[in-house]
Amino acid sequence: MEYSLGKKIAELRKSRGMTQEALAEKMGVSAQAVSKWENDLSCPDVMSLRPLANLFGVTADELLAPGEISRAEVLPEVERKNVDDMMLRIYVNDNEDKVKLNIPILLLKAFMGEDGKLSDGINMKFGSKSLNGIDFQSIITAASMGTVGKLLEMESDDGTTVDIYIE
């Protein structure tokens, strides 16, 4: 998937729980300027790229490269959101269907049984792909420790891909 600079800025900002206004303030520009960056109507100037990348904990190269920034990171405590305000995003793409799930961690926690596995009756199955084998308890733990970004990327023999993000 082609990721524009604007889309990357928007995703990185959201994953850190920042508003456009907050990013604008840190970068010393207006919120309108940030909005234009994110909608690919303009670009940050060259001198802003490194501070912007540093702010998000990525490199300027990663910001400018066409692909997605695909790594998870642990945010410092001051930047972390409450785990119950975080969202798990799951993208399943098999040859027939594209499925996107947005599951609040708050809801995911309720799905978990005392044994740390999904409760009986919760079946996350899409086409031939079952997600029940995923260690969701570890994902919740990772989220509560401030992990954000792409946690997991799987590709089956049949070409089905599953990507999991915490935001």
């Binding site: 305000d85 594209k98 499925v99 799930l101 809801l107 309720a110 409760s119 009986d120 899409f126």
Partner: peptide
């Protein structure tokens, strides 16, 4: 749900999420 306690827990979380994210798109299938 086979376990009534976890069923109640999910129902409670659903209500809380509905309050927090009133228009959340939980599932999108194309």
């Amino acid at each position: 749900n086979t376990d009534p306690q976890s069923g109640a827990k999910i129902a409670k979380a659903l209500r809380a999420c509905k309050k927090k994210y009133p228009k959340l798109k939980l599932v999108e299938v194309e």
